[in-house]
Design a binder for these strands. Structure first.
Lengths: 189, 189
DNA sequence: ACAATAAATGAGTGAGCAGTCGCTTATAGG
DNA sequence: CCTATAAGCGACTGCTCACTCATTTATTGT
């Protein structure tokens, strides 16, 4: 019986937030700047997100959801090497397509402002846990904690994305080299 | 002919800054809270650091200097494996002794508030660059960019420190496993 | 067309912040 | 001991920020 909220406006706010958070940092990106970059009034931002912290958490959740979406055609039944490589490539695709998102994710993770549920493992991580277990068997790392292996994998992928962002011309070789290193580490060659 | 500045007070301010930045985040740690945690007046903070940004940059530089100091007895003439392992262990020692510093370093690096000179490679990084080159030869990665290899090394070390912080009881095995992975990756077993 | 509802707006508000300043106090050199 | 100098102090200032609210506007169901 009333005016509905607009998904477009909500998305515009989230997109503007990514830009400003990446460029200025969480504590230095005012909600007023975010709303004006999104093309809405200051008050409007708060009908979509009750507080700035809620916006930050929601943004983090949305970014993770989109990663999950990107991984939709994950080859569940392929061998470990193929599955790991799939995640590796999709992750780097995303990082190149939206270089600011990675930065924002890192900022949010080290900000202490994320609720626990926002950080809960998503589909990709769950799948990686399983894959890591299998990879560990292959590499004789049976005793290793899968959580740790996933952390290492992510660290490598993020470092690679960071390097590629700074050296675009080395994109392909860095992807290959990076995965070679990861695979050597996990599976022992 | 006048009252000298006190190294103790300067250090107290830097120490208090680490605590508050780690707990609250850069944009949410007011200088007033830092000065009072350090036991000095608000104005005093600004006789030691002209602005908050200068404090942040100085803090980052000091943390790097202390890492260099920690690496003072680096075994320059030992073999690659020994040297890498030395850096690995010292890094993790520091991370366990001062868990908040690592967090603050990550925050500062992703904050966009560091001047370029604060981020210039320090002694350890320069040494790691050289070591990585040699490690790459050992592992048949001769074409690889040493900068990239160093980035990967740091990423692994930070991930390991993070994991150990969350799982103290797995400290020793994580150190071993982590280095095993790094060495496998770099040198190919 | 109309009434009911909620979105949209942007000036306003109170809190909190980085940095200042006039004053007090400690220290070094003479 | 005395004087010059700068450290130390904390109330204060001007500004910015997250969030509110009275009003206007768009949309929906009848």
């Amino acid at each position: 019986m009333a005016r509905p909220r607009s998904d477009k406006k909500r998305q515009a706010i989230l997109d503007a937030a990514v830009e400003l958070l990446a460029d200025r940092g969480i504590g230095y990106a005012p909600t007023s700047a975010i709303s004006s970059a999104a093309g809405v009034a200051e008050g409007t931002l708060f009908t979509y997100f009750k507080t700035k912290d809620e916006l930050l958490n929601e943004l983090y959740r949305e970014m993770r959801k989109e990663i999950d979406r990107e991984m939709a055609d994950y080859p569940f039944s392929a061998d470990v090497h193929t599955r790991l490589r799939f995640v590796w490539d999709r992750f780097l695709d995303m990082a190149e397509k939206y270089p600011k998102r990675l930065k924002v994710q890192q900022q949010l993770r080290s900000s202490g402002r994320l609720l626990k549920d926002a950080e809960a493992p998503n589909m990709v991580i769950k799948e990686l846990l399983q894959t890591s277990r299998e990879g560990a068997e292959v590499g004789g790392l049976d005793g290793a904690s899968p959580e740790y292996l996933v952390l290492m994998f992510r660290a490598q992928a993020e470092a690679t994305a960071e390097f590629i962002a700074a050296h675009r011309e080395m994109e392909l070789e860095s992807r290959e080299l990076g995965f070679k290193l990861v695979w050597r580490a996990l599976a022992g060659q």
